[in-house]
């Protein structure tokens, strides 16, 4: 379809609509509000559901209801709202319900501010709510990916019957780029074996209670197996000028865009810098990062808009062969390409 100039937040809604999402439940919060606004404008044109819930808590529980009713469904928010969704998210995971949550990260803790940050990483990537569960997490860095990854998120949510996050920052949510809207899906996978349709044949049960200790242990092991299989087949990442890199910078979301410029500027100075960009944050590209030293990488610098959340995963992946350094900016500040390059020169004497 023809390209349209639109915000990342709007692109996410188009991705959802084309994925066959029929129910959107949300609560406004900057810098994610345009997602609710776009859904409010588009969904009624297709006789699909848009509802502004009374809170993020209500919204995620509505998503629980819609998902259990067999709909492709989503919600979106930012830091404080994502915190409120955590209990409901745990119920979604515990009841194996496919759903999509978009988190446009802002500055924290507390009310913080509405500038871009990446400080929801731990709560989103590690599960967040109570109990043993994980979210699959996709991290777009441009508007086209906001659209495509949201659509993909619905597919993964169905494939694993699990919540999937689209996790990005205020920059990617608020910026506009050209977006090519994908074709709408023809149909969505059959969910009649578990969804509640209120018909004689589908008196199913959506539930996360397992009173018996052995039953609950078994259920948790099944969830674990699901996450292990996602680890085996869903890792996504991108590399830029990594072929002969001696130093690797690692970043996601808006940071990965700036890092691209850092790499180009470094190369002009003869510094062999490359960019490794995780696209799935869970499953994390641990094997690929773990293999960097064997590919000739001698130094690793993780750059993020948090005091160091993803860097822990990078270091776990490196398994002690190297230790990643960390550069961060906070509070809505995004480092510039040259600021990062200065840091690299300082750290590594290049």
């Amino acid at each position: 379809m023809a390209k349209m100039l639109m915000k990342g937040n709007h692109a996410a809604v188009y991705g959802a609509v084309m994925a066959g999402c029929t129910a959107y439940y949300g609560y406004p919060i900057t810098p994610a509000s345009e997602i609710a606004e776009a859904a409010a404008s588009i969904m009624p044109k297709l006789d699909r559901t848009f509802l502004q819930a009374e809170s993020e808590i209500a919204a995620i529980n509505m998503v629980y209801g819609a998902a259990g009713s067999g709909c492709r469904t989503m919600t979106a928010s930012s830091g404080p709202g994502i915190s409120l969704k955590m209990e409901g998210l745990s119920y979604c995971a515990g009841s194996a319900l496919p759903c999509v949550i978009v988190d446009i990260m802002r500055g924290g803790p507390g009310l913080g501010n509405i500038g871009p940050e990446q400080s929801d990483y731990n709560q989103v990537v590690k599960g967040g709510g109570h109990g043993n569960f994980r979210n699959l997490v996709l991290a777009p860095n441009c508007c086209q990916e906001m659209c495509d990854f949201t659509k993909l998120a619905f597919e993964l949510a169905d494939k694993y019957r699990n919540p999937v996050f689209v996790l990005t920052d205020g920059v990617v949510g608020q910026m506009m780029e050209a977006v090519e809207i994908p074709e709408p899906v023809n149909s969505i996978p059959d969910r009649s074996s578990w969804a509640v349709y209120g018909t004689p044949l589908h008196k199913n049960l959506i539930n996360s209670i397992y009173l018996d200790h052995d039953d609950l242990e078994e259920w948790n092991r099944k969830l674990l197996a699901k996450y292990e299989s996602a680890k085996a087949s869903e890792v996504r990442f991108e590399e830029y000028r990594m072929e002969d890199a001696k130093i690797a910078v690692i970043g996601y979301g808006c940071v990965s865009r700036v890092l691209r410029n850092t790499v180009d500027a470094a190369r002009e100075r003869g510094i062999k810098l490359g960019l490794f960009r995780p696209i799935t944050l869970f499953p994390f590209p641990e094997k690929q990062i773990g293999a960097l030293p064997t590919r000739g990488v001698e130094k690793v610098l993780t750059v993020e808009l948090s005091t160091g959340q993803m860097v822990d995963d990078v270091n776990l992946a490196l398994q002690g062969t190297l230790k990643s350094d960390l550069y961060f900016r906070l509070g809505g500040n995004v480092p510039s390409a040259l600021e990062i390059l200065d840091r690299i020169s300082e750290l590594y004497g290049v």
């Binding site: 129910a23 259990g68 067999g70 709909c71 008196k203």
Partner: peptide, 23 residues
């Protein structure tokens, strides 16, 4: 004998909202 949702403490009206809109 019906379809069932076991849900979080206090949230039944929110879940019911979405269930009734889907059905």
């Amino acid at each position: 004998d019906g379809g069932h949702f076991q849900v979080a403490h206090g949230r039944a009206p929110a879940v019911a909202t979405a269930v009734s809109r889907a059905n």
